[in-house]
Write a protein that binds this DNA or RNA. Structure first.
Lengths: 176, 176
DNA sequence: TAGTGCATGTAATGCGTTACATGATTTC
DNA sequence: GAAATCATGTAACGCATTACATGCACTA
């Protein structure tokens, strides 16, 4: 079965109870966007494809005059998902402009370079607030979904500390 | 000035002493690939474009019969780089298939789900070895380049510990 | 002399995002 | 009555990767 980046997301979220394409997009935006993105331009065509291949079953379920199509996993779909979960990890793509700036920071006066570390620290703090807000209203999510949210929170906490540690170290090693 | 993802990489690496397109590709692969990727298909067209726009200056410098063109920053190029360093951080894209699997791990029997955490832990360990090997031969790199390498190493160390901590916690909370 | 590293480049392909279009329903 | 949310979908665009093509130079 042909797959793209959105395939496991669609099947996984339907497996966790998402019903419409809109649900899936919300799930991505509210829970997964910090480690896996997805757009309508991927989701809707993928839903039609997966239904045609028999991995999901769709049914029209309008709300009044507003169209709505809901989906659930077929046995084949659930099997695909479980097989995928056992597969090898391949994709890890990380693109972090703040690290890229830090990488070239030797081109700046020292104080400006240290300023980049402060900016990075602030970025982690801001992200932390977003994730903590999500955590507050995620009480009854499945265990491992919560675990990944914890990862996001603890990673950003670590990131704040990392910036502070190295700021202290660099300020100590070469005072103005 | 129009820019893509490769623009600051090309200018930054030339600023750090890279001379040819091949040098830049090597720099990306050996030092930056864990947080910013780049391919020949981007680099060579970008070098021509940046030369045409006057941010770099190119000169033919063949080795025997083998063609080679080397570049250096112009004043305009250095200025662009410094301005970019001071700009706002925008891009942070993180795509981690291992986290995505963990996110959906509630679809698996508990022991298999914990197995995903073990796989993740191993992934961090392997990456750690690669980065430590780079660190060994990076003694005289510029300070902030080394700092980013440290980030990679310390992040993966943190990642190993994170997996171990939560494995312990989850094994304790629900013994078979 | 075989293998690795140096060196430049392009074409095709696939992919994902962005922006747009449209409209109903619920909530304040 | 306004604003937010629910809901579906496509077209254009830009971008990056992949694969391919080519060949010299150095080193073991």
């Amino acid at each position: 079965m042909r797959q793209t980046a959105i395939t496991p997301v669609v099947l996984g979220l339907i497996g966790l109870g998402a019903r419409s394409g809109y649900d899936i997009k919300s799930g991505v935006d509210n829970s997964a966007r910090f480690f896996w993105a997805g757009s309508y331009g991927q989701i809707y065509p993928e839903l039609r494809r997966l239904e045609a291949e028999g991995l999901i079953r769709g049914e029209d379920s309008p709300t009044g005059a507003r169209g709505r199509r809901v989906y659930e996993l077929t046995d084949a779909g659930r099997k695909w998902l479980v097989d995928w979960l056992a597969g090898p990890n391949t994709t890890i793509e990380y693109r972090d402009e703040s690290l890229l700036r830090l990488f070239f920071a030797d081109a700046l006066p020292r104080e400006d370079a240290l300023g980049l570390l402060e900016v990075r620290r602030r970025g982690h703090k801001e992200y932390l607030e977003i994730l903590r807000a999500i955590e507050t209203r995620a009480g009854d999510d499945p265990d491992f979904m919560n675990l990944v949210l914890r990862w996001g929170i603890e990673f950003n906490e670590w990131g704040v500390e990392w910036c502070e540690t190295h700021l202290r170290r660099l300020r100590r090693s070469k005072p103005a």
